[in-house]
Nucleic acid binder design. Structure first.
Length: 579
DNA sequence: GCCGTTTTCGGCCCGACTGTTTTCAGTCG
């Protein structure tokens, strides 16, 4: 039996949830499947091995029944209940439930009454006006279904934008609205405010002395392509880049409630409300209703919202229902790392490999950011990168770095490399050459489709190597483009802790690798984290903010991250210095 | 199906909108 990834288990739970929903199960049972899928997907360890050990129930949302289903999936490749339900509901029905306006109930009605079992059959039924006699379907419904079929909805997943592309729109947009005379307060909300990996749309919350004027001002911005609606309550527009923006305008005394609500996450808000209900309070975007008095408290700030619920303020990056509510109630939230805590960057490229700037230019740019140290880590020799650095070239590069380091004031330059980890686990510079360097990052850049076992051994070999200081971009994922390679992160973390090998959070907004769940697991296990830009040019140091965002989402403090240290302290943390 | 400061049963977040309805179910965020 092939090894089962968390992604595969989560997909099986999502499918079974969809099938039960079509089957008419009570919604809470369906929600349990969706929650379980999310818990599995975000688990930093292999849920399959947890289930084998009878420990999967340690995950919140996984009970005995779900654990048994995971074990069945491992042993037989399927879940019996799913097999049964698949016979009753054709796969095309799921696609129909994905159409806007059609959910499981109405899709089921179409299937039972008309035999509609696919998007094509649905189109034919609408065109022959066979929906008319059905209760709940009228001419509007027909038109909406046709429109949805035209746009291809239901056939493909909606486009998601990596965070840097979303913020490139959101930040100028928020600033422009703040500058408008009709505006009072304007804040970015939604998943972009939580600094997630990728976003579907943008949410902006404002207060205004002239709401309609502000709503119209949004539609008039250069980056807006079209306006869907604009009025007293706000506006919905589409940008030229295809990103939808929702502006909501609040009464000043409810701004905190609205901002909190639309910052989410959904899971955070649901858990927040469950906790509130136990105290006789009902939280919504309009305020906090007290059962006892039937009075609704309105909050002008988010701080008030959390305060009235007996909690410390929770930073947006933590709002994922991963324990932040309990920590806030107990006053045990971490003091999260900030971008200004970084004192160095340990992963950068120059013209020697695939970078765009020289050693000197990179050093000056790093110094201008206030960094005390920078490692120059060009790619190593093999595996088809353009402009790889041969062993001879690396020796010359070491000399150049040392020379610039001697002549340049105010920054410590490290002669380093980003050395490839070959498929068999060896590195592609020999040990004697690596020993001349001040800093070595080892990364996987080839043969991504290895089995999880082989990939894990490959990376463990690099971790066990005495000259390797850190592992670069642990899973190789590219956000919204490809999943990471399959690796047993739990074993990697254990080995990293034992050997003193640092684990990188690569800050490139297309990578953010380690992911926030992996980074949190690594830090909790006691691994040293290093946040690196992987800059290929002087303008790329600014991506550090995305590495910091991932670190904050992983609950990291400045202490958890090695390159918040002064150079003298960082130098002593390197594996080579620890003997 | 999960879960427990309502603890092994009985709940499970909240509100808006839509199209259809004659008081509301389903869908969505």
């Amino acid at each position: 039996m092939a090894w089962l990834t968390n992604t595969q288990i989560a997909a099986a739970f999502d499918e079974l949830g969809d099938l039960y929903e079509l089957d008419g199960a009570i919604i809470h049972r369906v929600v349990a499947y969706r929650n379980a899928a999310k818990a599995v997907r975000e688990a930093p360890v292999s849920v399959a091995s947890l289930a084998e050990a009878g420990r999967a129930t340690e995950l919140s949302g996984i009970g005995r029944t779900f654990e048994e289903k995971i074990v069945a999936l491992i042993r037989t490749g399927d879940i019996p209940a799913a097999r049964k339900l698949r016979d009753r509901f054709p796969p095309g029905l799921i696609a129909i439930t994905r159409l806007p306006g059609l959910g499981p109930k109405r899709a089921r009605q179409l299937y039972d009454d008309l035999g509609v079992d696919s998007l094509e059959a649905l189109r034919a039924a609408v065109e022959h006006q066979r929906l008319r006699p059905l209760r709940g379907f009228g001419p509007k419904a027909e038109a909406n279904i046709l429109a949805a079929l035209e746009t291809g909805a239901g056939e493909r997943a909606p486009t998601r934008f990596p965070l840097d592309r979303a913020l490139a729109v959101a930040e100028p947009l928020v600033h422009a609205l703040r500058d408008h005379p009709a505006a009072d307060r304007v804040e970015l909300a939604g998943s972009a405010r939580r600094m997630v990996d990728s976003v579907k749309d943008l949410d902006v919350i404002a207060t205004a002395n002239e709401p309609v004027a502000l709503a119209r001002a949004l539609g008039a911005l250069d980056l807006v392509e079209s306006t869907q609606s604009a009025g007293e309550a706000g506006a919905r527009v589409m940008t030229h880049g295809g990103l939808r923006v929702d502006l909501r305008i609040a009464a000043p005394d409810q701004f905190g409630n609205l901002l909190q609500h639309f910052t989410g996450s959904k899971q955070h808000n649901e858990a927040l409300r469950r906790a509130a209900v136990r105290a006789g309070l009902h939280v919504s975007e309009y305020g906090i209703l007290h059962d006892a008095t039937s009075h609704t408290d309105r909050c002008a700030t988010e701080e008030e919202v959390y305060d009235r619920l007996g909690m410390a303020y929770i930073e947006p990056e933590l709002r994922e229902n991963r324990g932040e509510l309990e920590a806030a109630a107990a006053g045990r939230l971490p003091r999260l790392i900030r971008e200004s805590d970084l004192r160095g960057d340990l992963h950068s490229h120059t013209v020697a490999s695939d970078g765009r700037n020289t050693i000197e230019q990179m050093a000056v740019a790093a110094r201008e950011r206030g960094y005390q140290y920078l490692a120059i880590t060009d790619h190593s020799a093999t595996m088809g990168f353009a402009n790889d650095v041969s062993p001879k070239q690396l020796e010359r590069q070491i000399e150049r770095v040392r020379e610039v380091n001697r002549t340049m004031e105010g920054i410590e330059l490290l002669a380093g490399t980003e050395v490839n980890v070959l498929p068999d686990g060896r590195l592609d510079y020999d040990d004697a050459l690596l020993a001349q360097l001040d800093w070595v990052i080892a990364s996987v850049h080839s043969s991504f489709r290895m089995s999880q076992g082989a990939m894990t051994e490959r990376i463990l070999s690099a971790i066990e190597h005495s000259q390797v200081d850190a592992i670069g971009h642990l899973t190789g994922r590219m956000i919204e483009r490809r999943p990471g390679y399959s690796v047993d992160v739990e074993r990697v973390i254990e080995a990293a802790v034992r050997t003193g090998t640092m684990l990188e959070i690569n800050a490139n907004p297309n990578r953010r690798d380690m992911s926030d769940p992996h980074a949190r697991a690594a830090a909790e296990a006691g691994a040293m984290i290093v946040i690196n830009s992987d800059a290929h040019g002087i303008e790329s140091f600014r991506v550090a903010r995305y590495g910091i965002a991932t670190a904050r989402r992983a609950w990291l403090t400045a202490d958890d991250v090695a390159n918040t240290r002064r150079w003298e302290d960082f130098a002593r943390l390197r594996k080579r210095a620890r003997g």
